[in-house]
């Protein structure tokens, strides 16, 4: 590790707030996007299953 301690790593000299907020926002956006993309295919699959069951059940 480049930094001497974990506290120094969090502090990043005087630039800690900038670096960590940039990374925090980016992580939030990327994770939300990936989760939405993953969930969408699950939802579509479930919806198609539901439609097929309804067609087969004749209800």
């Amino acid at each position: 590790m480049y930094f001497e301690s974990f506290a120094a790593f969090l502090q990043m000299g005087t630039h800690g707030p900038f670096v960590w907020s940039a990374y925090g926002i980016s992580a939030l956006l990327v994770v939300t996007n990936m989760w939405l993309a993953y969930r969408r295919q699950r939802l579509v699959l479930n919806e198609i299953r539901r439609l097929t069951r309804r067609d087969q059940g004749g209800l």
């Binding site: 590790m1 480049y2 930094f3 790593f9 990043m12 000299g13 005087t14 630039h15 800690g16 900038f18 670096v19 940039a22 990374y23 980016s26």
Partner: peptide, 19 residues
């Protein structure tokens, strides 16, 4: 974030470059 050296001009703020 943790292992690359510091930039001699911009300090640690340059680490934003990696994202």
């Amino acid at each position: 974030l943790a292992f690359a050296p510091e930039d001699y001009q911009q300090g640690n703020s340059y680490r934003i470059i990696f994202i």
